[in-house]
Design a protein around this nucleic acid. Sequence first.
RNA 1: GCCCCUGUAGCUCAGCUGGUAGAGCGUUACCUUGGUAAGGUAAAGGUCGAGGAUUCAAGUUCCUCCAGGGGCUCCA
Length: 622
Amino acid sequence: MRILAIHSDFIEFEAKKQAIKQPEELKNKKERVEECVVFFISVEEGDESNKESIVDKAIENIKDISDKVKEKNIVLYPFVHLTSKPSKPDFAVSVMVMLEEKLKGDFTVHRSPFGWYKAFDIKAKGHPLSELSREFTVDSAEKKDDETDSMKKERKLTSYWHILSPDGQLHEVGSFNYSKHEKLKKLAFYEKEKSRAVREEPPHVALMKKLEMVDYEPASDGGNLRYYPKGRLVKKLLEAYVTQRVVEYGGVEVETPIMYNMQHPTLSKYLQRFPARQYQIESDRKRYFLRFAACFGQFLIAHDATISYRHLPLKLYELTRYSFRREQSGELTGLRRLRAFTMPDCHALVADMDQAMSEYNKRFDLALDVLDSCGLEKTDIEMALRTTKDFYEKNKDFIVALVKKLGKPILLEMWDERIFYFVLKYEFNFVDNLDKASALSTDQIDIENGERYDIRFTDKDNSQKHPLILHLSPSGAIERVIYALLEKAAFMQKAGKQGMLPIWLNPTQVRVIPVAEDHFEHARKVAESIRKEGIRADFDDRTLNVGKKIREAEIEWCSTIIVIGDKEKESGKLPVRIRGEKDLVAMEFSEICNYIKSRTKGMPFEQLSLPFELSRRPIFVG
RNA sequence: GCCCCUGUAGCUCAGCUGGUAGAGCGUUACCUUGGUAAGGUAAAGGUCGAGGAUUCAAGUUCCUCCAGGGGCUCCA
């Protein structure tokens, strides 16, 4: 519905000619109202889905506007020309009538007749509040109803929480012995924990700035961050690695648009469940929403593809930079919760539940291994699995086998009935320094969208079937992986150890420091040679004393530090400080290169896009 | 989105009951030529988040907005 409100000295209108087949009967052909607010109203197509809610929303707006100008005299004027998508006339009439009835108690209501071409004279007062327009839809109007509805649903849909151990035993969440599973306990009670005594921000926020990786961007919307060269490098490497692994697994990489038409028949249904939760933009009077996942793009591709059972499982893959979710502003934090994030998303189309489960197993291994290589081991994550009671009973062996692979107990949530599009979903959660749990990897068995998007494959018997769809993000959002790595480093610092990143991800793998100006030339050559080996080496050519340069290299978390002076020039052995180890190690040039290479084997490599000499690097923050 | 807290130099922060801004780090210049976590001296740097109100006078009080944090809710 769209409303144009004009605070007027008077309005005078006269019905001239009927505009639709069955116009309202005329009480007075001509009417004049003094000192009033005139509401020109367009009832729109979308409003038809919920009359009550659109009327309530309209009344709220009309009252709000009238109160602002302290006017009790109002005119309701049907005016279709505010919209390009009007509702059916009889619906619009009924809305106008209902508005009049409901507003009568509080206002003197005049209503101009519906279905006529009218002549009118109006004198607008012209003060700042005298002309206002409002636009709202059932979606936003319905929000309150939606919430109560979903609350009702939730009440109906009780969750049964358990701890499931690798031996297949189900335990009560309350009485399970968590002595070796502190973080699982935190995950299980995450939602029940009430307000915390200590108010602090998660440590990764300070670290992401201090390490010159990522920062807030006040000129953008909340949850849209800026990446400095070091952060961009780390993110790029993670993106490349996850993509490499998914392609090895058989992922077929595609790229899809970031925005979709809100009126699209298949998408709009999906959207109605989550109104006001995405960015919207307008182009040529059409409205588009920014994708919140890669699902649509890939499903639409699959819908148009010709697929045989021989092609299954068919794994479509995209790394979305970005996916957008307009999370509530109060929920945004550092790299944990964003409004724009980078999501690897791999959908496998499978023929049936058997194929789904066998594929699910492969992907489970893939996700575990990807996280492990990124520096997040089994001990760093807690698994949660959600399913229906029915699915659990029928597939208990399959589920317990997954828990066995993880090798430690998990949190299990079960429902009586299925309300989501999936029957089974797991996540690997990271529990951070503030005891908050965030999902990283996740995979779902979707039994609804194959049909909803009309994706079909031709089976052996030449029949057309809808595939089941698995939704896997092997690592979760890339930003969230960085968040977890930084939080993990903060845990290490708390325990008195040095914070660090995996060597393959670390912006500086080797820092070369000359003792004095005499050694610059030699040190530079050493650093350049290491760099030529495909190692991120840089050179501290600033005129500072050695102590200070080493201190700064430590603060930057350089993986190794080499100091070069007269001794080294003669002996050929280089003193190497390896991050996380106490003593210096004397190494030959080739040993250093081998050390780095052996620890970054199989992982992607990129040079850091900052000058090789530290004296030439700007300071982005600090 | 709601409730609470915060916003002073590039960074971290000080500034008492209103009287027109300070430190350390960093930067720049000069000195220092060094051996595994901070060498010295000096200079430059501020519409005190933005707008409005109160006052002779606002970084300081009040209102609105913006941004960040914590809690609630939420996380397709």
